[in-house]
């Protein structure tokens, strides 16, 4: 089975939303350094943040790949 990722544009929007959820979780632990805020920041906060950056890298990587493919296809026509 091949995993079908949404188009890059959607992927990046998802990444933005994930990061916007992760940032407050991380900042919350600074203002309330007790067990749950700190633990959630270090787990869920970090996790979502990392995932959002990974999505970004995937999207950019895929775009680059497509561009390169297009470039090699176009060249013989020059």
């Amino acid at each position: 089975m091949k995993l079908r990722l949404p188009p890059s544009e959607r992927l990046l929007r998802i990444a933005c939303v994930l990061a916007l959820a992760a940032l407050p979780l991380m900042v919350w632990s600074l203002f309330d350094p007790t067990v749950w805020p700190v633990l959630i920041a270090l787990s869920v906060g970090q996790g979502l943040g990392t995932l959002s950056f990974v999505l970004f890298l995937v999207a950019v990587g895929r775009d680059l790949h497509v561009q390169r493919k297009l470039a090699t296809r176009i060249r013989p026509l020059d």
Partner: peptide, 21 residues
Amino acid sequence: WLLMGLGVFPILTAGTANIAG
């Protein structure tokens, strides 16, 4: 811009929040 918004600045936040945590 997204590299800044999804990468550079959140990593700064995570790093400093980790140390503080």
